[in-house]
């Protein structure tokens, strides 16, 4: 077994795993045996900057947020591309200019679609 070329690697792996897990285990043991736990309702309550927490932490967000986020992301990315496009505009040949316009058209199309679907009016 010791002649196997992977033997040293296995030993190293086990040691590395132990090196990571041993402190965690010791901390867990220390907490179990020695830590002076004094739990109560007030202490275990949800932390909300000192206020009494209202409602559940698992809140559901309106799906409208999702569409807004997507549309925002589109125009965010557009702005990133528009800035260098505007800076280099005078030195551009026809091909990159057309490519950029197609890109813009795609995004405008997306906006038009969202508008037509009524996404922009908050329901």
């Amino acid at each position: 077994m010791a002649s196997n070329p992977y033997f040293a690697l296995t030993v190293l792996f086990v040691v590395a795993l132990g090196f990571g897990l041993a402190p965690l285990g010791l901390a867990w043991l220390w907490a179990k045996i020695f830590s002076p736990a004094k739990p109560n309702e007030l202490k275990n309550a949800t932390y909300e900057c000192g206020l009494v927490s209202k409602g559940d932490a698992w809140v559901q967000f309106h799906s409208g947020y999702y569409l807004y986020a997507i549309i925002f992301l589109i125009f965010d990315v557009e702005a990133v591309f528009l800035l260098p496009f505007a800076a280099a505009f005078t030195g551009l040949s026809l091909a990159p200019c057309l490519a950029m316009l197609v890109f813009l058209l795609l995004l405008v199309e997306g906006l038009a679609w969202a508008w037509a679907k009524g996404v922009l009016t908050w329901a």
Partner: peptide
């Protein structure tokens, strides 16, 4: 709030 934070 201060007392609650102390408790927590």
């Amino acid at each position: 709030q201060v007392v609650r934070l102390y408790n927590q």
